[in-house]
Simulated assay, not measured.
Amino acid sequence: LHYQAQIDGSRITGAEALVRWRHPTRGIVPPADFIPLAEETGLILALGSWVLEAACAQLARWATRPHMADLAIAVNVSIQQFREPDFVGKVLAIIRRTGARPDRLKLELTESVLVDNVQDIIQKMGALKAKGVVFSLDDFGIGYSSLSYLKQLPLDQLKIDRSFVRDVLVDPNDAVIAKTIVALARSLGLGVIAEGVETGEQRDFLAAAGCYAYQGYYFCRPVPVEDFEALLASVEAGQCVTE
């Protein structure tokens, strides 16, 4: 797993856990090259379970360090994982086994999860949320979910997709969409975070629109856990997170 910092204002509040494949001859294989294959073959279930277990084990380790105990880790959950009948039991078993704090675990789902059997998804989310698990809707705005579903989901956060953030300064439509997502999140009582923030100008635009949580190369690339912890230490020492 690599970790990409999630920022609230200028404070690191946690990270998204991103899987990387270190191939013996090809080096680092990008996720775009193997995640679709894992989904096609069904291996995404084993891979997703490993990611969740590794992330929760990391949360438990951080919980033993006072300056890191409140960090959260976001984990992407595939539609195939959510469809498993025992998905809730598996997640809770991993939390118990690793000793992770459930309220520090953020599960990110995409709008594709909502294509069918929405009531089943809502029930599973509700069962996990009752135990403290946090939910974020990833890639918001590019999928198929309706607003009627959105108000039913026990969400905590919307994530503005990077495709809107990338051109937010040059494309008036993307600017309007980003602002609208922020306003929608506020009206529903949800948090909002923007991914793919690569420049200070993008960050400033989002802040002016009312979005103060960010993730992207402007702050931190996905890095091994040792490098993420070093970044956190440097921020605590007074360095700017963008240095």
Rank of each mutant, 00 (worst) to 15 (best):
P224K: 11
Y218S: 04
F205Q: 08
Y212I: 11
Y218M: 04
G210E: 08
Y212R: 12
A207G: 10
C220W: 02
A207V: 11
A209K: 03
G216M: 06
E226P: 10
A213R: 15
A209E: 13
F228R: 00
L231T: 02
Y212F: 14
L232M: 14
L206V: 06
G210C: 09
L232D: 05
F205D: 04
A230R: 15
S234D: 15
A230L: 13
Y217S: 09
F228H: 01
D227T: 13
D227S: 13
C220D: 12
V225A: 13
A208E: 13
F219G: 01
A209T: 07
F228M: 06
F228L: 09
V223N: 04
A213H: 12
A213Q: 15
S234T: 13
C211N: 05
E229R: 05
P224C: 11
G210A: 11
C220T: 07
A208C: 08
D227C: 06
E229D: 14
A233Y: 05
S234E: 15
F228N: 01
V225H: 04
P224T: 09
E229V: 10
A230Q: 15
Y217D: 10
Y212D: 14
Y214C: 03
L206C: 04
D227L: 13
L206Q: 02
G210W: 10
L231C: 09
L231A: 06
